[in-house]
Simulated assay, not measured.
Amino acid sequence: MAMSGGRDDGEPMMEMNTTPLIDVLLVLLIMFIITIPIQTHAVKVDLPQPDDRNVVTVDPQKNKIAITADGVVTWNGATVDEVTLRQYLDQTAAMSPEPELHFQPDANARYEVVDGILSIIKRSNVTKLGFVGNEQYRNDF
């Protein structure tokens, strides 16, 4: 930066050496970044309150997951979404002794829905899983 390349006429260099200036500016920039206060802010979210009328509990003996032909997933007869299903499965896996889990998909249910629910069950580390209703297909094969 401050060197003149290729001139051998012996004249003094007329350009200012900017290397120390850049070094000082970089140090000041880093100090400025360090001293900036961290911006903290909160976003208020109104979460839904649990409804005591639709309470579905985890049975300590056996629980049943069913999938209807149109892809609706139910836990012990009550419709659930994937997040709620995972919470129920985590509660089930934490119980001692672990209750049985019965899985009963409808014959006309889409494979993607059944496969997605089975993957949720597998990730929850449930060890007592049984397929219910498969006996009706024993003569089909």
Rank of each mutant, 00 (worst) to 15 (best):
L47A: 05
G133V: 01
Q136K: 08
R110F: 00
V80F: 15
D140R: 03
V45K: 04
L21Q: 11
P97A: 05
K44M: 05
L129Q: 03
M95L: 15
M14F: 09
L85F: 10
V43E: 08
Q91W: 12
V72M: 14
N17I: 02
K122C: 02
L89H: 13
V72W: 05
G5L: 04
D140E: 13
T92H: 06
G77S: 10
E82N: 14
M16E: 15
M3P: 01
V126M: 14
A2F: 11
V114T: 05
K128P: 15
A2H: 12
Q39G: 03
G10R: 08
V72I: 10
T35A: 10
L25N: 09
A107C: 09
P97M: 09
Q39R: 07
T92G: 13
L28W: 02
I67K: 01
N134K: 01
D59T: 07
Q61C: 04
V72Q: 14
T74V: 08
Y88E: 09
N54L: 03
V72A: 14
A42R: 03
V83F: 06
M1E: 12
V80N: 11
I65F: 06
M16D: 15
Q39T: 06
T127D: 05
L21T: 05
T18Y: 13
S124R: 05
T18A: 11
T79Y: 11
N63C: 04
I121H: 08
L21F: 13
P105G: 04
V113P: 00
G10A: 12
S96A: 12
D52P: 07
G5H: 08
I36V: 10
T19H: 01
V27F: 00
R123Q: 15
T92M: 15
G10K: 04
I34Y: 10
I120L: 02
I34S: 07
V45G: 00
N108P: 05
R53K: 03
V45P: 01
D23Q: 06
A69C: 01
G116I: 00
I36M: 11
S124D: 14
A93K: 02
E135N: 09
F103Q: 06
H41W: 05
S119R: 02
G116P: 00
A93V: 08
E15S: 13
I117R: 01
V126I: 14
V55Y: 02
K64I: 13
F103V: 01
V72P: 11
A78M: 12
D52T: 03
E15G: 06
A94H: 13
Q61P: 00
P37L: 04
